Simulated assay, not measured.
Amino acid sequence: MTEEPTGRTRQLPPFHCPYCGDEEISPHGESTDGWRCAACLRAFTVRLLATGVRE
């Protein structure tokens, strides 16, 4: 039996905007998941869905 994680693990911040590729991004909003790109003015979040490892 495997244990389910009880909390979130801290992930590295994104290094570039997924829309335009610019590296000038900063935290956005009160949530720690939001990011804002200074070049294209988009706000976005990044979420890991899976790692590719199959059980």
Results as ranks from 00 to 15, higher is better:
T6S: 12
R10A: 15
R54G: 04
P13I: 02
E4S: 07
G52I: 08
V53C: 04
H28W: 15
I25A: 01
T32Q: 12
E55S: 07
A43D: 11
E3F: 05
M1L: 13
I25E: 00
L49S: 09
E23L: 06
F44L: 02
E23M: 11
V46S: 02
A39D: 09
Q11W: 04
L48M: 06
R47P: 00
C37K: 01
C20A: 09
T9D: 14
E55H: 11
P18W: 07
T2Q: 09
Y19K: 11
T2R: 14
E24W: 06
P5F: 02
R47A: 10
R42D: 01
T9Q: 10
L49F: 07
G52H: 09
L41R: 15
C20F: 09
T51C: 05
R54D: 11
W35R: 00
I25V: 13
E30Y: 05
H28I: 00
R8T: 13
R8H: 11
Q11N: 08
L12Q: 14
F15H: 07
R47D: 12
P14Y: 04
R10G: 04
A50Q: 10
A50G: 08
T32Y: 03
R42W: 02
V53A: 11
A43V: 09
P13E: 06
P13V: 03
R42L: 07
F44I: 05
T6C: 02
E55F: 11
S31R: 13
P18K: 04
P18R: 06
A38Q: 11
I25Y: 01
G7Q: 12
C37E: 01
H16R: 15
E30H: 05
F15T: 13
T2W: 10
R8Q: 12
F44W: 06
V46Q: 06
C40D: 11
T51S: 15
W35P: 00
P14T: 02
P18Y: 06
E4C: 03
E23C: 09
